[in-house]
């Protein structure tokens, strides 16, 4: 629970985006190491130990915090790699480690008592009992909420727990409960939990065929586009499928999350921090989105009305369709 100012937590896939996010007004940035210990394990992304240390110095000099995501599940017989990532994050002076795996949480709780532990969305802790278990066992200070809860449910949850909550407000939207989805490994052999990737690019093909362009993942057709139609990335759960005699975006339309209109509601529900997704995004994007959300959060803190917030965040859609996701109960 909090009555203070909400914290804006922003993505940093590279040292350059870290600096951009800090300069655009991020209260905290989150990032990961260049390996499978974090859930955005993409080529050309993430930090070495030295880059993190430098990033932490830069962020702290500018009054921002750095949260390090070590939020995949440690591989059997290789837990040392995840522990070492946590040790490095602590040595670099990061403000918090974001983790999901019991093995990682346990290691940090026992060996790095000075660093805050945040429970990753990948842990999918959505009930007071689950959150209290992580708080009692590992002393977590904050839980990143699974994207399945409505604003009303978040309010009830916050009344029942005494750790902070962080809620996603913008960016990519998982429709499945994160940390408990194996769709990607079913199709490709690689998954968020095992490898820190979902629907990996090396398994994607775009095939021009007489009836349009097929976007495939590991040979499975995820969507098809008319000639001239903009082609999307074949993320498995955003695909068009046939079921029950209907062809539809069965799991979710190709939409992104924008809960900008819910910032005031999330504050009233007791949420401490708002998170922007997108560590794979470039400097320009991060600067623009963070700047807009900085203004929106400040406006909410000063009692701004919904029309003013909408005006500030207009233009943050990149032409894509958006949803408020599970925050609105009818999404279910």
């Amino acid at each position: 629970m909090t009555s203070g100012r909400m914290e804006l937590v922003c993505p940093a896939g590279t040292p350059a985006t870290l600096r951009a996010a800090v300069q655009a007004g991020a209260d905290a940035v989150y990032c990961g190491f260049r390996d499978e210990t974090n859930a955005r394990n993409f080529p050309g992304l993430n930090f070495s130990g030295e880059e993190l240390a430098e990033g932490v110095r830069f962020a702290h000099d500018h009054g921002s915090k750095v949260l390090v995501a070590i939020n995949t599940f440690a591989r059997v017989n290789d837990v040392g790699l995840w522990k070492k990532a946590a040790d490095t994050a602590a040595e670099c002076g990061a403000n918090a480690i974001i983790a999901a795996d019991i093995a990682v949480l346990d290691h940090v709780a026992k060996n790095h008592k000075q660093i805050r532990l945040h429970l990753s969305v990948q842990a999918a802790a959505a009930t007071p009992e689950a959150i209290r278990f992580y708080a009692d066992s590992f002393g977590i200070r904050r839980v990143v909420l699974p994207r399945v809860l409505s604003v009303q449910e978040i309010a009830a949850l916050n009344r029942a727990i005494d750790v902070e909550t962080e809620a996603f407000v913008f960016g990519g939207l998982c429709v499945m409960i994160e940390g408990r989805c194996y769709l990607s490994s079913y199709a490709t052999g690689k998954s968020p939990n095992l490898n820190g990737v979902c629907s990996p690019p090396e398994m994607v093909s775009y095939d021009d065929e007489p009836n349009g362009t097929a976007a495939r993942l590991s040979g499975f057709t995820i969507d098809r586009y008319e000639p001239g139609e903009p082609v999307g990335y074949p993320t498995l759960c955003k695909g068009k499928f046939k079921a029950g005699g209907k062809t539809s975006y069965l799991f979710e339309d190709p939409v992104t999350l924008n809960a900008g209109g819910m910032i005031a509601g999330l504050k009233a529900a007791g949420v401490t921090a708002l998170k922007i997704e997108g560590r794979q995004r470039g400097k320009g994007y991060v600067t623009e989105v963070v700047r807009a959300f900085r203004k929106a959060v400040d406006a909410v803190e000063q009692g701004g009305d919904a029309i003013e917030i909408d005006r500030i965040l207009a233009g943050q859609s990149e032409g894509s369709r958006q949803t408020a996701g599970a925050y609105s109960k009818k999404w279910r």
Binding site: R147, Y186, E252, A326, R332
Partner: peptide, 9 residues
Amino acid sequence: LPLALSGRC
């Protein structure tokens, strides 16, 4: 194989 759970039905 149980592959995923969602808040959505």
